[in-house]
């Protein structure tokens, strides 16, 4: 009926509950303490974690925990129309919500008086870059060996042509009715990011969250595999002895 979904098939050939193709990799940058790379649809995002480390300037240090800083940034060539390199209001807001999505999992009190810096660079953007960024950032934090009570994984759901769908592409995000990014700590089931952009009934809202959580569950499997590949590749099997 609509122009974005035809007989249950979306413009890029996906069903309504299907994720775009994805790829996750851990340990991609030499200098960073932890790093990860994600491709999700056309998104290509690289994340580096530095820390825990001394805080500069010193006065922003906290006596009983570490400070988490986060910067989400898009390279000028990452978008359809060139983006100026200076951070936009959108990037600043996204940096904040990403930080707040990740912070609940970090055992901050283990590292008093220090800082952890999380840098996300979007090399190519598509719909759902903040979610893809969060999924990769959690891997970078784990790669840095920072104590965490869980990973964090994120995925969006939304309403397109009157139907609730998983993992919106760029065009579905722009031309659809609603977009709702969700991040969750997968083992704990605690939601750490929720944004909504568009009108949904209560029914659709619930359906959307259920869809997003299902997407997160699949991406969490991919996160686990990426970490296993990086750290236990030479292991003969998972259970030892």
């Amino acid at each position: 009926m609509g122009k974005l979904i035809n007989n249950g098939i979306r413009l890029d050939g996906r069903r309504v509950d299907e994720l775009r193709p994805y790829k996750l990799e851990v340990g991609v940058l030499k200098n960073a303490d932890g790093s990860a790379y994600i491709e999700l649809g056309k998104n290509k995002i690289i994340v580096a974690v530095y820390g825990p480390k001394e805080v500069h300037p010193k006065h922003i240090a906290l006596p009983d925990r570490c400070v988490i800083r986060c910067r989400y940034h898009m390279s000028p060539f990452s978008t359809d129309v060139r983006k100026t390199p200076a951070p936009s209001r959108r990037e600043i807001e996204i940096s904040k919500v990403i930080r707040e999505a990740l912070e609940p999992t970090i055992l901050v009190e283990e590292y008093p008086r220090t800082a952890i810096d999380i840098f996300l660079e979007v090399l190519q953007s598509d719909g759902g870059s903040r979610c893809a960024g969060i999924t990769a950032a959690a891997l970078a934090l784990a790669d840095a060996g920072i104590s965490m009570c869980d990973l964090v994984v994120a995925c969006a759901a939304g309403k397109v042509d009157g139907t609730m769908v998983l993992d919106l592409s760029d065009i579905e995000d722009k031309e659809g009715e609603a977009d709702m990014p969700v991040a969750v700590m997968p083992n704990l089931g605690i939601i750490t990011l929720l944004q909504l952009d568009g009108i949904l009934t209560h029914e659709e809202f619930k359906q959307g969250i259920d869809l997003a959580l299902e997407g997160c569950r699949r991406l969490h499997e991919a996160q686990r595999k990426a970490l296993m590949d990086r750290y236990f590749k030479t292991a003969p099997n998972q259970e030892v002895e």
Binding site: T105, C149, N187, Y231, Q238, V240
Partner: peptide, 26 residues
Amino acid sequence: VKRKYVIPGELITEGNYRIIANVIKR
């Protein structure tokens, strides 16, 4: 002693154990 490769948030075991390091209990 039982061993297992784990990532953050992963269930190690259940029961009654003393925590030595890098483990949380729920």
